[in-house]
Design a protein around this nucleic acid. Structure first.
Length: 130
RNA sequence: CCAGCAGGUCACCUUAUCGCCGUGUGCUAAACUUGUUUUAGUGCAAGGAGGAAAGUCCGGACACCAUAGUGCAGCAUAGCGGGUAACGCCCGUCACUCUAGUUCGCUAGGGUAGGACAAGUGCAACAGAAAGCAAGUACAGGUAAUGCUGUAGUGAAACCAGGUAAACUCUAUGCGGUGAAACGUCAUGUAAAUCAGCGUUAAGAGUUGCGCGCUCGUGUUGAAGGGUAGGCGGUUAGAGCUUUUAAGUAAUUAAAAGUCGAGAUAAAUGAUAAGGUAUCUUUGGUUUUAUCCAAGGAGAACAGAAUCCGGCUUAUGACCUGCUUUUUUU
């Protein structure tokens, strides 16, 4: 754990289940660090991985599939490189969904800064409750 | 040199770090149905969006459904011939038409919702008495009488036809519907929902717009398994691609050889950093101009597979070839 940082983001870590998405949209709680918003919900401890995450970009704000893909890739990279913040000591299992709220194409540097802030905010919240 | 038209080609590159996806292969571990097994982890190798992947506008392949049949209605197409799995697509050709040239014979290029006004209905600017059901001008002739007859006049067309079908309509041909969230299958697992047999057939319900037809209903016995979410198959070797030869004016077809080129599913095919290329542009110098040289700046457009093919349409950067027109210089 301490010798090499884990920067992977494989299939098992991705949020796949349709059911979970429905639950997230229905009863998820949110943390916002503009231009990002995270919706999260606590899941069963029976799952193999502690945290599953997905990213999303509104089709209404970005009609072009190319632009949507680009933003999602940037979000995924930012999460992949900074997820170690969460994996140190997570008190419970969570499903996360990170959304992009901006109206224009973002800079990667800005996304990275916002992602770090967002993850720290989230960590503070669940730490306080647990 | 600039502009237009036609045709063709490509779809930026390199390096570093960190990642994603399936495939092949090696190692390790676990499981048992001990196998060229399955699962997990890990190393290596080669590969990983398009010319439009887009719009979803046509045509197919494939799958399921009698709520699928049938008649009417409806929709689509429209010279002729050919190509094709098929098409509303493509090729050739005739006619008409537009543009340019012309030795007035034509030539080159483009366009065409180019079947029928020999059945019926409708429509028609201006002029005109009148362009269809109601009227009637002038002159002449004729009659018992009358637009009854001729001529003039208006107009493309006048008591009778003609024009018009991106007007109804008619003719010919074709068309069932739903689309990969189709469909098949596996495991989990509960009822009113499914299937088969027997009996009852009365009201009624369903369908594509309507009719016919078809299906269902209610009781009982037995059997198997739906919906939702998930896994696997379908699902990437195909009307495939490249080259050569032959047939054909061409679209295209045939034969031979070679070749395998993404398979995701909240959706992979990347992110970041540095450098460079095509190209554009600014300044200065050179040259009659074109050009060339130096320095600086910008720097790849449109766009993301989603069952698969054939087209059409739309978006869009750069280069090459040919033709035409205009201007300048020699």
């Amino acid at each position: 754990m301490e010798d090499k940082p884990n920067f992977t983001y494989s299939r098992a870590e991705k949020l796949k289940s349709k059911k979970l998405f429905e639950i997230l949209f229905a009863e998820g709680k949110s943390v916002t660090q503009f231009p990002l918003r995270m919706v999260y919900v606590q899941t069963d401890a029976t799952q193999d991985l502690a945290i599953k995450a997905g990213v999303t970009v509104s089709k209404r704000k970005f009609k072009s599939a190319v632009k949507r893909n680009r933003i999602k890739r940037q979000l995924r990279e930012a999460y992949r490189l900074n997820k170690a913040i969460l994996f140190d000591n997570s008190p419970a299992n969570y499903a996360l969904l990170i959304m992009y709220l901006g109206n224009e194409m973002p800079e990667s540097e800005q996304i990275h800064k916002s992602m770090v802030g967002l993850l720290l905010k989230f960590k503070g919240k669940i730490g306080n409750r647990g």
